[in-house]
Design a protein around this nucleic acid. Sequence first.
DNA 1: CTTGACCCTCCCGTGACTGGAACCTTTATG
DNA 2: CATAAAGGTTCCAGTCACGGGAGGGTCAAG
Lengths: 128, 128
Amino acid sequence: MNIGEVSKNTGLPAKTIRYYEDIGFVTPARGDNGYRSFSEKDQHKLVFLGRARGLGFSIEDCRTLMALYEDQGRASADVKRVAQKNLSEIDRKIADLQAMRGTLSHLVANCAGDGRPDCPILEDLGRA
Amino acid sequence: MNIGEVSKNTGLPAKTIRYYEDIGFVTPARGDNGYRSFSEKDQHKLVFLGRARGLGFSIEDCRTLMALYEDQGRASADVKRVAQKNLSEIDRKIADLQAMRGTLSHLVANCAGDGRPDCPILEDLGRA
DNA sequence: CTTGACCCTCCCGTGACTGGAACCTTTATG
DNA sequence: CATAAAGGTTCCAGTCACGGGAGGGTCAAG
C-alpha cells in the first residue's frame, strides 16, 4: 500500500505517517521507485498509534504500549500502570482547566461588557 | 531593579522575562554595565502578563489585553469578548479531556492489572 | 504526450519557553 | 588586594508533534 491509502485507512495525515517513520515507529518497505510500501502490520501499528495518541498518550508512552502490545508474555499490570499514569495526568489537566475556568467565568460574569471603560477583568489581571 | 529581583517579585523565571523582552512585551532600560533596569511599570506589566498567562490566555491574547489595559478609553466589551473566546476554548479543552478520560478509565477499570497477559486496554487500542 | 494526482526529500516554522555555553560585572570574604 | 561566588549578558539549540511549502520524480488516464 502506498502512503495515501494508508492515510485514508488510518485517518492519519501522510505527513504524520512519515514523521512516525522518522521516529522509528514503523519501517515500511520501499519499492523500486522509492515509494513507501506499507504492510497490513504497518497499518495496524499506525491504527494503534493513532488511537493511543487520541487518548492523550505521549509518543513515549505509545512506544511503551506498543512494545507491550507486541510482547505476548507481558503482564497486564504493566499496561495498566501506564494507562493510570496517563489517566491521572488527564485528571490534573482537567482540574487545572476547571480552576482557570472558574476564575475566568467569575470575571466575565462581573464585567458589564458595555462601552464603559471599567472592567473588572483588567483590574484583576493588573493587581499586584 | 535587576532581573533577579523582578523575577522574585513576579514569580516569573529570568529566562521568561528575557523572552518577554524579546517579543516586545517590556522594554526595560539598560544600565552602563549592560544590565536590564526594570521600572515599577515594567514589573507591573510582567505581573499582568503572568496572571493572564496563568489564566490560559495566549501571548497574542495578552498583547490585546495589555493594549486594552493601557488604553484608558477602551470599552469593557472588547475585554469581555477576548475573555469569552478564551473561556469557550477552555470549555472545549475540558470536554475533550473528559471524553478521553471516560474511555480510558473504562479501559483501566476492565483491566485485571495482574501478571497475566490478557489486557483489554491493548485489545481496544489494537482494534481496527 | 500531456495533464494531474500522487509520491519523495529537505528545510523552516509553530508556542512559549528551557537549558547550556561562554563570557562579563558585582559583591562578599580571607 | 586577590579571589571566588553570585548574578548578569548574549546566542544557540532543543522541546513536542507535527504542518507548510519548495522543488522535484513517478504513475495512470485520456
